[in-house]
Amino acid sequence: MKKVTFKQQLLMELGVTLALYLFFQSLMSLGIINSYWRGIVITICINVVLTVSLNITSGFLGELALGHAGFMAAGAYISAVFSKSIALIPSVEFPLALLIGGLFAMFLGYLVSIPTLRLRGDYLAIITLAFGEIVRNVLLNIKLTGGAGGYSSIPKYTTFTWTFFIAAACVLLSKSLINSRQGRAIISIREDEIAAEASGINTNYYKKLAFIFSSFFAGVAGALYAHYMGFLQPAYFNLDKSIEILVMCVLGGMGNIMGSIISASILTILPEALRQIADYRMLVYAIVLIVMMLVKYAPQFEGLLNIFKPKKEEEA
């Protein structure tokens, strides 16, 4: 069995990315994907960025974070303010706006990570939930960005190409992170924090790193969203939004990047495809969350689920 070298793997990843891009791009220029579906593809890409980045904190670090929409909102608003108040050529202004969105969210991610060094589980979930609500409430009260009424006429710079390559970057960089010593350190904290420390891992440092990485991409996703819609409203970034991202993450599998991509795609398309029953989406979310909690906190329930799994235990 010959092993794939690092270089081959890198080339393969870049090749697949490019092929996927050309595939979508040609479908769009041939008109097979119309402008309505192009919008959905862009939304999928944004949701992929949100889900994969959340997976770093929730799936790999193992901290239930409920404030991802807060980071997204921060990135969205700051980048929108930037590109509305500055007049550069778009090809310079937009990447700068994305970067500023990411960096600002990252700064907030750093702040949020500090209490997480001492808290775990439910307490951490509450802190991140509170963070999301604080961001939304602050935005409601900022006159510059129109408060509850919304912030409009943001330049619509977001294109399929930008969104696709940023989603690809997020996915590939997350994958690299996970396979680096830093990523293994993050996963080891989820697995056993005491053993990680005993193995020489500065767990506080790596928790912060995970939060910073995760919030950076949430901020970038927010910036993409802002320049796609051209209009922002604080109400969009509520707890439901955070939970929507979390559900995508959970359904795709905690700690599974490929799963995140798939579930973000399915859960973005599904409500569009089933527009007439879109109201039930939140019901589905609620059910999924309840099932997840049962599995997580009531071990006897897991046994119940195992009944549905094919029996092939002997393998190990």
């Binding site: 010593r181 996963i187 697995e191 056993d192 005491i194 053993a195 891992i201």
Partner: peptide, 14 residues
């Protein structure tokens, strides 16, 4: 106290 869901090799790489 192993990192149960990491591979044997990853436990050492950690």
């Amino acid at each position: 106290r192993l990192f149960k869901n990491m591979t044997v090799k990853e436990n050492v790489l950690l």
